[in-house]
């Protein structure tokens, strides 16, 4: 009986963690203020000029 209770506690904890983490999910963030480029960047992430 004690073994069954211990197993149930383990299972419940696993379910609680996975359900909580899945429900929270990843943060959405904000729309980037960077523009759609109409100039050629000199290197990745290096926007030299915007219109």
């Amino acid at each position: 009986m004690r073994a069954l209770i211990a197993a149930a506690i383990g299972l419940a904890a696993a379910l609680a963690i996975v359900l909580t983490v899945s429900a929270i999910g990843a943060p959405e963030g904000k729309t980037s203020p960077k523009p759609l480029l109409t100039t050629v960047p000199s290197a990745p992430g290096k926007i030299t000029q915007t219109k």
Binding site: A6, A7, I9, G10, L11, A14, L15, V18
Partner: peptide, 20 residues
């Protein structure tokens, strides 16, 4: 009993992580 609870915890976490 504590070890058994942890064994079930990690054993359940494994498929739950992958498929849920």
């Amino acid at each position: 009993l504590v070890l058994l609870a942890f064994a079930v915890f990690f054993g359940a976490l494994s498929p739950l992580l992958r498929w849920y």
